[in-house]
């Protein structure tokens, strides 16, 4: 008898908790995969496609589905390290021969531009303004330096120029030899 009571009590408890858990699962359902968002936040959002995916978000989804984390040259080793921390894997070396060089932005040589709008269509972040048969120009503050506009240009008038170092962006150089003034007279 007592055993039956115990079974009934436990069974009832199991039913109640099961109902609560089931309700909670529906009520607090997580819509998207938050991991993808977290990965996407780490990626540099240049939308350059160098990883082989059409943008950072698709690559983030691919990483969440098990793709390698070392395909993002603009993010460099810093991004790989963060991704490795997030996903709990070891950080591999960057899957590219070139290490991320200095930050660059696109620059349109205005004399050579024929106004074909091809670069405008290629730009993933709408950082190029211009109209058909009008000169185009790059909003350098919005340019992510993804290189995607260089190839479509039929007259090769887009250069990738390194961002100039200004006094605000200058980083103190520890290795600099303390400059001294050689005796002048």
């Amino acid at each position: 008898m007592s055993m039956l009571t115990a079974l009934l009590a436990l069974g009832a408890l199991a039913l109640i908790f099961g109902a609560i858990l089931g309700y909670a699962a529906l009520r607090f359902k997580v819509e998207a995969d938050p991991l993808v968002d977290q990965i996407d936040d780490i990626l540099p959002q240049t939308q350059c496609g160098q990883c082989g995916y059409p943008g950072c978000r698709p690559y983030a989804e691919a990483i969440a589905n098990g793709d390698a984390i070392n395909k993002c040259p603009p993010g460099g080793d810093a991004a790989i390290k963060k991704l490795a921390d997030l996903l709990g894997v070891s950080a591999p070396a960057l899957d590219s021969a070139q290490t991320p060089a200095v930050k660059r932005v696109a620059f349109i040589r205005e004399d050579d531009c024929i106004g074909c709008t091809k670069c405008i269509q290629a730009c993933p972040v709408d950082a190029i303004v211009g109209a058909s048969k009008q000169m185009h120009t790059v909003i350098s503050n919005e340019c992510t330096g993804c290189d995607l506009c260089v190839e479509p240009c039929p007259v090769n008038c887009i250069d990738m120029v390194p961002i100039a170092v200004t006094t605000e962006r200058w980083k103190w150089d520890l290795q600099a030899i303390p400059v001294t003034i050689v005796e002048s007279n």
């Binding site: 990626l43 950072c56 919005e142």
Partner: peptide
């Protein structure tokens, strides 16, 4: 900048 680029990319 990444945030802005993302917003612009999404908008596009």
């Amino acid at each position: 900048k990444a945030e802005q680029a993302k917003a612009r990319f999404e908008a596009r």
